[in-house]
C-alpha cells in the first residue's frame, strides 16, 4: 500500500486555541480524498501544514514516505501542486505571464507545457490573451490556479475548496477535470470542501474533521455499504424471520438483529411483507433509511460538534 501522505498526531496551536488537534490522515496513491468539515474545523490548517506554509506545534507527517523533518521533504514537495484557499496568482499579469512565471520557478522552459496546462483546464483561449488576471471571473482564476499547479506534473494535487464561488457549470467542469486527471494522469487528490454532495461525486475516500480533530476516515465503498438504503423490520419472531429472508434477499444484504433484521439495498417490500405475514410473523415496525454523505457527516461530525 503506497501512501502519498500520512500525518501522525499533527497539531497546530494559535495562542490558546488548537486549530488542529492530533490529526491523523492517510492518503493512498490514486485516492481522491474528500476532506470534509465545517468552517474553522481545521481543513485549511492541515493543508497549510503539509504544504510547508506553516509549521506544526507538535506531531509529524510523511509526504511520499519522506518525514517532514528530513531535508528531502523539499524534493517530495516538488511532486505536489496546491491551491490553498484562493489561487495564488499575480493579478497584474496575464494568464500566460503567470504560467510563465510559475514555469520559471519550477525550471521549465517549454511553452508547450503552458499550452498543455491551459488546454487541460479549458483555458487555451487565454494563451495569447493579454487580459490581466485581475479581470478574470472567480471560476477562471480557479481554473488558472489548477493550470499553474499542473505545470510541475504533480503526483499529488491539493485543492482547498475548489468549488467555492463557482457557478453550476464551473462546478461540473472542475469535477470532470478532477476525475480526468485522476484517471489519465494517476494524480492523487486531496480536496477540501463543505459542498458534500459535490464531493460525493468524485471522492474515493473521505476524512471528516471537526474541531481540529479528524473524527473518521472512510472509503467511498465502505461509506456506501454502511450508509446505503436500508429497511429496519422489527417483528415478534426474529428467528422465523431469519429463515424466510434469504428466499427474498441476498444473504450479504441481511443484517440480523435481536428484534428483527436490517435489509440493505432495493428489495420489493410488498412481496417480502406479504411472505412475512403469510408465515404468521407479526410486523411490529418498519423503518426505511435513505442515508447519504450528509447524513454520514452529521452522524460523525455532529456528535463531535456536540461534545
Amino acid at each position: 500500500m503506497e501512501y502519498i501522505l500520512r500525518t501522525f498526531g499533527l497539531s497546530k496551536r494559535y495562542k490558546n486555541h488548537y486549530a488542529l488537534d492530533k490529526a491523523c490522515m492517510n492518503i493512498q496513491k490514486g485516492d481522491i480524498y474528500g476532506f470534509v468539515g465545517e468552517n474553522g474545523s481545521g481543513k485549511t490548517t492541515i493543508i497549510r501544514l503539509i504544504t510547508g506554509l506553516i509549521s506544526a506545534t507538535s506531531g509529524s507527517y510523511e509526504l511520499f514516505g519522506i518525514p517532514n523533518k528530513s531535508p528531502d521533504i523539499l524534493k517530495a514537495r516538488r511532486k505536489v501542486g496546491a491551491i490553498v484557499e484562493t489561487p495564488s496568482i499575480y493579478q497584474n499579469m496575464s494568464a500566460y505571464d503567470n504560467l510563465k512565471m510559475q514555469s520559471a520557478i519550477i525550471g521549465i522552459n517549454d511553452d508547450n507545457k503552458i499550452k498543455e496546462a491551459l488546454f487541460e483546464v479549458g483555458l487555451i483561449d487565454l494563451y495569447s490573451n493579454p487580459k490581466k488576471v485581475g479581470n478574470f471571473s472567480l471560476g477562471m482564476r480557479q481554473r488558472l490556479g489548477i493550470a499553474m499547479a499542473l505545470l510541475g506534473d504533480p503526483e499529488f494535487l491539493i485543492l482547498d475548496e475548489p468549488m467555492n464561488g463557482l457557478d453550476p457549470a464551473g462546478i461540473v467542469e472542475i469535477r470532470e477535470l478532477i476525475l480526468k486527471l485522476n484517471k489519465t494522469k494517476s494524480i492523487t487528490f486531496l480536496i477540501s470542501s463543505h459542498i458534500l454532495t459535490e464531493l460525493a461525486l468524485v471522492a474515493t475516500k473521505y476524512g471528516i474533521i471537526s474541531k481540529g480533530r479528524i473524527v473518521r476516515e472512510i472509503t467511498a465503498d465502505e461509506l456506501r455499504h454502511e450508509f446505503r438504503r436500508s429497511t429496519l423490520i422489527e417483528v415478534d419472531n426474529p428467528f422465523k424471520l431469519s429463515q424466510i429472508l434469504p428466499e427474498f434477499v441476498k444473504f450479504k444484504d441481511i443484517s440480523l438483529l435481536p428484534n428483527g433484521a436490517k435489509i440493505y439495498g432495493d428489495t420489493d417490500l410488498n412481496i417480502l411483507f406479504a411472505a412475512i405475514i403469510k408465515s404468521g410473523i407479526n410486523i411490529l415496525s418498519v423503518n426505511c433509511n435513505d442515508a447519504n454523505i450528509e447524513d454520514f457527516y452529521l452522524s460523525v461530525a455532529g456528535g463531535a460538534r456536540h461534545d
Partner: peptide, 18 residues
C-alpha cells in the same frame, strides 16, 4: 511585498523551494 499580498510566495514554498 506583492509576493505576499497576491499570495504568490506560496507557489514557491509549495513546490519545495527552501
Amino acid at each position: 511585498c506583492k509576493d505576499f499580498s497576491f499570495g504568490t510566495i506560496r507557489n514557491k514554498i509549495i513546490i519545495g523551494k527552501s
